[in-house]
Computed example of a mutant assay.
Amino acid sequence: MKIASYLTSVLEESGNQVAFFLRFARNIFRNGFEWNEFIRQCYVIGYKSIGIVVLTGFILGFVLTLQSLPTLKAFGAQNYVPSMVSISMMREIGPVIIGLICAGKIASGISAELGSMNVTEQIDAMEISGANPIQYLVVTRILACTIMVPILTLVADTIALAGGFFGTSLTMSMNARLYFAKSFNTAVFGDFFPAFIKTFLFGFIIGFVGCYKGYHSNKGTESVGVAANTAVVAASVWIILIDAVMVQITNAFVYN
């Protein structure tokens, strides 16, 4: 009985998510797109996340350099540190880590905001007044996440190179011009493009999960915290799953 009840709840949740996605998709191209709210969400999601993204990117590049340099020195390959940092950040480390950082910051924020609006019945008031809460609250946030997370990832990748140069300058003599030349000489379009496409999926799932959990939170103050927590966990798991699938697709069609 417990297994049947669990499967029933999973199927119901999956059906609710599909229905929520269809409502989102129908409202993307509907007349009256909320451009002002969309721009505001891009500012909130993108600009206000720059600080943590820059700090994370710099530390990633710095630590990755310091950790890998002794091993590469043992094989006389320390000159490949810039290439290793740039390719590692572009292909995998940058998109995934920044995606998880954004899941913790953005998904929880969206879920808590919409959950609070749901608890205080603001969403119900919008529906009663004839407004379209899906178009105003959901579409703008999901599209803003889908656009801004890739941009934040590009910022982190760029700052990571600066962090890598800082780490390199502490342990070996290499000027900035040589370092950045080595960083980009070995990188090819196939290293950047699949990972960049992946970040759009990360951004979409962060926005979708955050909106869904907040929009469907229970009518209670404690449900806001529960919605924010479950949004972070669900978005993080989805990011890891999407990354695993995209890596297999990339290996099959790009690197072979």
Rank of each mutant, 00 (worst) to 15 (best):
V224E: 05
Q78R: 09
L60I: 15
L11H: 03
T250P: 08
P194R: 04
Q67F: 10
I242D: 00
T146A: 09
T221H: 00
T230L: 15
I45A: 02
L66D: 03
D157P: 04
Q78T: 03
L64A: 07
V232Q: 01
I240G: 00
A144E: 05
R141I: 12
T221Q: 02
N175T: 05
D191W: 06
A77G: 08
G190D: 05
I45P: 01
V139H: 05
I134E: 02
T186Q: 14
M89Y: 01
L22D: 07
F200L: 10
M174E: 03
M89F: 02
E12C: 10
V188I: 15
L161Y: 05
Q41D: 15
F208D: 02
I147P: 06
G130R: 14
S88G: 09
A144Q: 06
I28R: 03
M90W: 08
F208S: 01
E222M: 10
T221R: 02
M90N: 06
G203A: 08
S173Y: 13
T230Y: 12
G76I: 14
S116Y: 06
L7D: 02
Y47Q: 07
E34W: 00
S88H: 00
I101Y: 01
N79W: 06
T221I: 10
A156V: 13
F33A: 01
Y6P: 00
A4W: 07
M148N: 03
R177K: 09
T140A: 00
A228C: 11
A125R: 09
N118F: 04
G167Q: 08
L170S: 05
M1V: 15
A103D: 11
G46Y: 10
R40K: 09
I142V: 15
S236P: 01
L114H: 02
D191A: 05
G32R: 11
I87K: 01
L114G: 01
Q17K: 13
F184T: 08
F20R: 11
E113C: 14
F165Q: 01
L11I: 13
Q135Y: 09
M246D: 03
I142H: 04
